[in-house]
Each structure stands twice: as structure tokens, then as C-alpha cells.
Nucleic acid binder design. Structure first.
Lengths: 246, 246
DNA sequence: ACAAAAGTGTTTTTTATACACCCATGC
DNA sequence: GCATGGGTGTATAAAAAACACTTTTGT
């Protein structure tokens, strides 16, 4: 059951597809001040989908690994201190990119998507005048180019899952944070009533990788909160162990 | 953005890579009689790696989706009743395929790997005389072609994880099975002492999607066991819910 | 003084773990 | 009868969930 691509009808049956491979990054960050989950979008200036927002991506160059390509996009768009990057999923159906139809060569476009987390405060967007680039709150994502809404949905699901069993939260939070910041981040992403604050608090503290710096910070009314720091060394032995942050 | 790919060594810098995309399947099954976790391997007859075992795979054809290609390999190699198929990971570093070096066209080979589960009893291997194809016990996997050992490792990790929180076990077990079969499968994959049998048993039964058919089956000495059946309908509401099979 | 946010502790319920014991069959 | 694997129950420990209460600040 070979599918055929029309156009140049001279193609032998079952001929192999030629691919260009793109990487598209779902880059999340959290604005702790406003408790908003943010996604980095860029405005396209070329066809197809010129004038529409899309996930930051690029086509893979010769001699470049997939992860290198994903990293290159990141470096071109933002100046980030730390960043977390992992492969998400590969979308490769035919007709996912209109360029496939245009070119008569039967070239396919395949997207290997990556999932990235950066700290909002330490991250500076590289706006080179012309190119639009912006953090979009997740609730206000517009119609994106290609199948990028689908990719984003996939990335968001990954984020929610990872929050529950891995310390990715600390990739998104600033170096020093209060336990409320941490809790707010979880409620922002996972929704209200995922857990009681005091239970969440004692569960996390019992795990032993949150260092109380002793420094207090006051934000408006109420008792000042302690600033904590994630202790990667203390966390190391817990790697691979089933963890529950819920 | 970057320019065009042409042949010959006169490539402009930053030119895009041209890809052929392959799919490689990590196909697991379990021989309940012998309590062995099996992986389907095929013997290569072409270069590169001719004469070596490899994961069953193919290159993606024009007009064919990635999953269709993965499915095509499956259908060519085995006649299976039910099968479970999901995308695993995409391996795409340069130089992962020696063919990249041979051809001076700068063609890259990228592998989208898929993870599949089939029922051992209901699965018939399609041996077309020449092509070697065999179930290999996981402990006896030889040196494989390409980076297939790495892909297999990745697939095995996925299998272990999925066993803990999703009902994939029933994709591998025969239609009717005893609770011992189920327990043995878990110990085979997860190793001994992952859980006490009686606790495993009551935990699973309490979830309510295992139907006791009432039919008893006797295997050698000992009390005959009840045959159970996985009830997909009863499981449906538990989808998306955090499950524990441990 | 009082509201607001941070932090502590206690009670109840649920789930995990360990293990003792009964049941039905083959030999 | 007894070894073997199947199946049930119970006692204990641990963890999750609910929630009451104290502390420290700004206004």
C-alpha cells in the first residue's frame, strides 16, 4: 500500500522520500511575579505562514546534530543562564508542511520537537529589530504556523508530567525562591487543588534537597518568607528513584 | 536563513542537510511458558553491516507517514493479532550511519524509533526463506548494526516504565492469563522482589479491570489457577488517572 | 488591631509491606 | 501424605489528605 505523491509523475513506485529535518522548540518559562506560564514564540517573516506566530525552530544543517540545532535556535533567540533541553516528539506525517506541495521534488518536512525550560529572570530575549519574539502566556496562545499548536499541546503535557516526578521546577524558578513561589508554580501549571500547601511544603522539605538560605524576603503584607535554593548534590542520590512532588 | 544543498564538495557553509529517514522498531514479546522477554531481530543482507543482526526497520517512502512505515515493517515481518505501537525516540546525530560517509552527497540518515508490543502466542514470524528473523531473549542480544543496541536499551527502559503505570502488560500477555502469568511477566521485566505476589495480586484485582472467567487451568502440580481477561471497558475510566501496578 | 502570608502540628484516612495461613491439585 | 503452586486474610508501618493553629509582617 504505497502512498503516492503526485506532481512529477515520473517517480518510481515505493521510492524513498527525501527529507528536510527541522527542530522546533517548546520553550517554557514562568513569570513568578505574575504567576504565568509562558511560551516563547517568534513571528514568521517568510512563507509559508508569513506573519503568523510559531515555535522557534530551524532546519538542521549539514554536520549538525539534532540537539545542536535545537541549541542553536535557543542561543539565537535568547541569552539564558541555565537551560534544560530534552527531545519531545517527532512529527512527520506527509502534508504537515505546505512546502511539500509547492516543491515538485517530493521533499518532506519532518519536525523533531524539543522541550526546553529557562529561568524567566535570567533570560534575555534577543530582539534584532525586525524579528518579532515574545513570551506568550499559555492561555493566550494564538493560532500558530504549521502543526505547532499540536506540538505545544504535547510539550505542555510533558511539562505537567515532569513536574510530578522530577525536579524540573528548579529549571524554571530563579536561583533563590520561596516555598510559596514553588507552590505557586505548581498550581499555575497543574491547576488549583493539586495539593494542600502545608502538605506540599512538608513533603518537599522532607526530601532534603531544598536548602534554607536563612535570608528572608517580604512581599507586601504578611510574614516574610525564607529563600530556598535547590541543592543538586543532595538531590543526586535521589536520581532514578521514584519521586513524588505531586 | 541558510541556502541550498547541492552535490559535490563545493557546499556553501550552513547548507541544509538532506535526510533519508528510517524507522526502527523495538518489538517486545514475552514467552510466558519460559518467562523470557524477547526482542525481534532481523539479519541484514545488505551493506552496511551485512551479516549482522539489527532491529527491523525500513526507510520511509514518499507519501508515507512515520507510523505507517513502522507499521509496514511490522506487517512484513510478523502476523500479529493485536499490537501496540508508539514512538520511542529519534536518533539523528551525524555519522550514526556509515552510508553518510560513503556517499559524497552529504546525505544524513535519521532513525525514528518505535516501540511495539505483541502477544507471543498469537504472533507468527514471516520467514521468507532467505531473510533471517528471530526472537532473541533480552539477555542474549548480540552486537547489533548501527546504534541499534542503544535504541534497544532505550526501548527496554520505556517498557519498564510503562509497566509501572500503564496496562501494557496485557498487550504482551495472551488473551487469557492467570495472575501468576501476570506476576511472572512483571518479575521477568522488572526483576525479582519488585513486589510481594499476594500484594500485587490484591492491588491489581482491586483496580477492577481484571475479569475472572471462572475457567481453571492446571499446570503441573499445585492448585489450578483462574484464567483472567483484561476488560478494556472497565479500564477506560481509569485512563489518564495515575495508576500503580508496581 | 487586624488582615495577610508564612510556617507548624495533629488527626484521620488510605495505601504499602510483610507475612501467616488455608486450598486444591499431582504424584 | 506431602510438595507445589494458587489464593485469602491480618497486623503493622508509612504515606496522603484534611485542617486547625501559631508566627510575623504591613497597614
Amino acid at each position: 500500500m504505497p502512498g503516492r505523491t503526485q506532481k512529477k509523475p515520473a517517480d518510481p513506485p515505493n521510492s524513498l522520500a527525501d527529507f528536510k529535518v527541522g527542530v522546533d522548540n517548546v520553550i517554557f518559562s514562568v513569570d513568578t511575579a505574575q504567576n504565568r506560564l509562558l511560551v516563547l514564540l517568534v513571528l514568521r517573516h517568510e512563507e509559508p505562514f508569513s506573519g503568523q506566530w510559531s515555535l522557534p525552530g530551524t532546519l538542521v544543517r549539514q554536520g549538525e546534530s539534532l540537539e545542536d540545532a535545537a541549541d542553536r535556535v535557543l542561543v539565537e533567540k535568547i541569552r539564558a543562564e541555565n537551560l534544560y533541553l530534552e527531545q519531545l516528539y517527532t512529527f512527520g506525517g506527509p502534508e504537515r508542511d505546505p512546502r511539500e506541495a509547492e516543491s515538485c521534488y517530493g521533499v518532506r518536512y519532518l519536525s523533531v520537537s524539543y522541550f526546553a525550560l529557562v529561568q524567566f529572570a535570567e533570560t534575555e530575549l534577543i530582539a534584532d529589530g525586525v524579528s518579532g519574539i515574545a513570551w506568550y502566556p499559555l492561555q493566550q496562545i494564538p493560532q500558530l504556523a504549521f502543526d505547532h499548536n499540536q506540538i505545544l499541546t504535547y510539550g505542555y503535557r510533558r511539562l505537567r508530567n515532569k513536574l510530578e516526578y522530577s525536579p524540573v521546577a528548579f529549571e524554571v524558578l530563579p536561583e533563590l525562591f520561596t516555598l510559596s513561589d514553588l507552590y505557586q508554580l505548581y498550581t499555575t501549571v497543574l491547576g488549583e487543588n493539586f495539593s494542600d500547601y502545608s502538605n506540599f511544603r512538608s513533603r518537599l522539605l522532607k526530601l532534603g534537597f531544598l536548602l534554607d538560605t536563612g535570608v528572608k524576603v517580604s512581599r507586601g503584607a504578611g510574614r516574610p518568607a525564607s529563600l530556598y535554593r535547590f541543592d543538586a548534590d543532595a538531590f543526586a542520590p535521589l536520581k532514578d528513584k521514584p519521586l513524588v512532588f505531586i
